[in-house]
Design a protein around this nucleic acid. Structure first.
Length: 430
DNA sequence: TGAAATGTTGGGGCG
DNA sequence: ACGCCCCAACATTTC
């Protein structure tokens, strides 16, 4: 029997590793482990845990309808998986690849443990169209600039087509069992999430309109797919399939950014904590705690910055246009280390994806691959004129922005811009 | 997927 | 009619 380990692929439809397990084995035992190394660090009402739990429950109900069920535990996968291999006479463990540094280290250890007990460990590409080693320059080194990467990525997609793994047609091959109920959210030490997670819009209409609508935060015109892709509740191949037929291909290109940053993190895992361009780690950040608090809480005195931060705090989401602005404001106006912002977003964003978060923060700070040059400083009032002209988005999140109770600007724009340019220049010169 | 500073051009007011 | 100034509008350079 093959054990299939669900991780960030919480669906039964078009799941590569799950499909291979079901195709190749007489019976498949589906399991999930709430990894205590990850979830013990999260707040008890973290909506992402609730999201995972609801999708595990959904899978379990479907499996039960097929006379099976999912084994679900909280703990250390490095202990549970080998134990289950022993208990259920497992010959191979199949799972889908996860390219984050933590997961890679964990899988390496898992490989060793399973090899030691004579169990095969096999991983499959599922969360990307192309794995990090599949799109390389002619000299076999990774692309560090987005545009040539995207050109090659799209050409490769057109050449190869998009595979489909109809795992949902093979559920009758699941191991017949009666494991009973899976642990409740409360039994796992969590409560109902503080945020609602909106349904995703992956329609062609959304994609076709994306180029024209994506920059206006009041329009709510984005897909909200991030969290679904993060945990694999939606198949990336299905999304790419649709995005491919949409014009202009702006939405597709955003999906390519996702894989661009994933391959960057895979090839340069130290960029989780170090700037890709090392000289940027010599910048003399001010790192003022009170300034950081004002930014976090959305009390900077710049309405569009504050609207973004309040949207994030209240919903776990922020429109991408505003993410760029608040990021620029933190690093450049306040001279606070991009790592502080990265950590705050990691805590708050429901759609948090390490590769994208690290990659985009380094982009905005100017220290990453293919980054915004350091002298590109967003002007928080110009951004209002361009992207929230009627103040609709600001009004929604900062309704008091014109009243006396609204704080004054925490820094003067002209002064902060000049201070930023001087500080970056000095740091990069040393 | 920047914005500010600086440079250029041309129309209109005016003596 | 002409030169001069002002300045909006646009282009280019710079940070």
């Amino acid at each position: 029997m093959i054990l299939f380990w669900f991780r960030r692929d919480l669906r039964e439809t078009d799941n590569a590793g799950f499909f291979h397990a079901l195709s190749e084995a007489n019976a498949v035992l589906p399991v999930f482990v709430f990894d205590e190394n990850i979830i013990n660090k999260l707040p008890k009402n973290d909506a992402r845990v609730g999201f995972i739990h609801s999708h595990i429950s959904k899978l379990n109900r479907s499996f039960q309808a097929n006379g099976s069920g999912m084994l679900v535990k909280k703990g250390n996968p490095l202990e549970w998986i080998p134990k289950w291999c022993h208990d259920y006479n497992i010959t191979a463990v199949y799972t889908n690849e996860d390219y984050e540094p933590y997961a890679r280290a964990r899988d390496k250890e898992m490989q060793q443990k399973l090899t030691a007990i004579g169990v095969e460990f096999k991983t499959f590409k599922d969360q990307v169209l192309f794995a990090p080693h599949e799109v390389l320059k002619k000299d076999s080194t990774p692309y560090k600039v987005y545009t040539p990467f995207s050109r090659v990525w799209i050409a490769k997609m057109d050449e190869m087509g998009i595979p489909n793994y109809p795992s949902e047609t093979l559920l009758h091959k699941l191991y017949k069992s009666s494991f009973g109920k899976i642990p409740s959210l409360e039994e796992l030490g969590f409560s109902k999430g503080q945020h609602n997670i909106p349904t995703a819009n992956d329609s062609k209409g959304m994609m076709d309109a994306y180029e024209d609508t994506r920059n206006f935060p009041s329009m709510d015109s984005t897909s909200r797919l991030g969290v679904y892709l993060r945990f694999g509740a939606v198949s990336i191949r299905k999304v790419i399939q649709r995005a491919r037929t949409s014009t202009p291909p702006t939405f597709l290109k955003e999906l390519v950014w996702r894989e661009f940053f994933m391959q960057i993190l895979w090839h340069y895992p130290h960029t989780t904590h170090s700037s890709f361009k090392p000289q940027y780690d010599r910048i003399a950040w001010r790192n003022n705690e009170e300034d950081f608090k004002k930014w976090c809480e959305g009390n900077t005195g710049y309405p569009l910055v504050d609207a973004g931060m309040r949207e994030l705090n209240q919903t776990g989401f922020m429109h991408n246009r505003v993410r760029m602005l608040v990021g620029s404001f933190l690093c450049k106006h306040l001279l606070i280390d991009w790592r502080w912002g990265e950590a705050y977003f990691a805590e708050k964003l429901l759609d948090y994806e390490q590769a994208s978060n690290v990659g985009n923060w380094q982009w905005v700070a100017g220290c990453g691959v293919d980054a915004a040059p350091y002298f590109r400083v967003f002007n928080p009032t110009e951004q209002v004129k361009k992207f929230d002209k009627d103040h609709k988005y600001i009004q929604k999140w900062v309704p008091e922005y014109q009243s006396l109770s609204y704080p004054p600007k925490m820094v003067d724009h002209k002064m902060a811009r000049e201070r930023c340019l001087e500080t970056y220049k000095a740091g990069l010169a040393t």
